[in-house]
């Protein structure tokens, strides 16, 4: 099956960044001049401390990044004479900087703030120490600029494992998701899952803004899982950990009989374990999904049932005293008539 092409954001407005930093991580960014920050954009995930650029070396100045003025930069500016300071700062402003952030409660002289304003560069002040600020800002920008991909399928949190249920149209992915929700698991998204690569090897899935927790069940129409099952039945996002691919039973294909997972599928360069699940009459896919999740959990705890079973078998073969016929699980259970 074809996978759509990845996409990612090209720019994020400074206003959006400031609002998220305030509301979500509690980092205040007070604007020191009056530039319209709705119209300023950052296009790079990285941050830059322009110490060397202030000292006059601008050959490798990454000016398109958000500029962070920590104690070093601010003290350096203040130790210069007035004229020198203004020309050093003006040199920086020859470039189109997305914004300047003064961390650790630092300030700049009003003249410099005005100079930035005339060049349309917003300046912010935050009480948060430089390293802590940069860490949080990076986390936000990394999330915003992460490569994304739309996947066709349902994402359900089953016992804490993110199962992505995929398969051709009309095979019953939504029905399985609904059944899992009914059994107390939590729906992340149905039909359209947006996967974003949060870190190396970590894929986070969520629904779309419009369709979040709405679901189409063929023959019924559109249902709202949150309205029907309540908040306990949903979640905003979940790491995608296992892909379950449903498909019609194919005589010619050889199915896994012992190992639960022996294949992986790359999504945004993250290798996810893939379980191919043939659909046959009488098969309860929901229960199988629960078993897949539990088995994945067991493996996390270092228990691989297939390995354990293989070991038991070879132990018996090698013991040399195995009987000709299989023995009962318990040889004699005294006076048990049940």
């Amino acid at each position: 099956m074809r996978t759509p092409e990845p996409f990612q954001k090209e720019s994020v407005s400074i206003a959006f960044v400031v609002e998220k930093m305030r509301k979500r991580v509690g980092v205040e960014m007070e604007q020191c001049n009056t530039v319209d920050i709705e119209k300023r954009f950052v296009t790079d995930v990285n941050l830059h401390r322009p110490g060397v650029a202030l000292a006059g070396f601008t050959a490798l100045f990454t000016h398109h990044r958000m500029q962070i003025f920590g104690n070093t930069e601010c003290r350096f500016l203040m130790h210069m004479g007035e004229d020198e300071r203004q020309s050093a700062f003006a040199k920086l402003l020859e470039y189109d900087l997305p914004c300047i952030v003064l961390t650790d409660d630092n300030t700049l002289p009003d003249l410099l703030l005005v100079a930035a304003e005339t060049r349309g560069v917003p300046v912010f002040r935050t009480p948060v120490p430089t390293t802590a600020f940069m860490y949080r800002m990076r986390d936000l920008l990394e999330d915003q600029f992460a490569p994304q991909l739309t996947l066709h399928g349902s994402l359900v949190d089953v016992y804490g494992i993110g199962l992505l249920i995929t398969g051709p149209s009309g095979i019953g992915k939504s029905e399985v998701a609904l059944d899992l929700v009914e059994r107390g698991h939590r729906l992340v998204a149905d039909d359209v899952v947006i996967a974003s690569k949060k870190a190396e090897g970590v894929l986070i899935g969520s629904g779309t803004e419009l369709a979040q927790h709405f679901m189409e069940v063929r023959g019924l129409g559109i249902v709202d899982v949150r309205a029907m099952f309540g908040v306990r039945a949903i979640r905003h996002q979940k790491r995608i950990e296992v892909i379950v691919r449903m498909h019609l039973w194919d005589e010619s294909e050889e199915y896994t009989r012992i190992e639960m997972v022996d294949e992986t599928e790359p999504v945004l360069e993250v290798d996810l374990p893939l379980v191919k699940l043939p659909i046959i009459p009488g098969k309860n896919v929901t229960v199988i999904c629960e078993v897949i999740a539990m088995n994945h959990l067991l493996r996390h705890y270092g228990y691989n049932p297939a390995e354990v079973f293989k070991q038991r078998l070879s132990d018996q073969i090698n013991s040399g005293n195995g009987p000709g016929r299989p023995r009962r699980g318990i040889e004699w259970f005294e006076h048990d008539f049940e």
């Binding site: 092409e5 739309t150 066709h152 149209s169 359209v192 779309t208 369709a211």
Partner: peptide, 14 residues
């Protein structure tokens, strides 16, 4: 740049 499965009604509506 955003791509969805055309056989899914939720997808088309998004």
């Amino acid at each position: 740049g955003y791509e969805i499965n055309g056989k899914s009604i939720i997808g088309v509506m998004t």
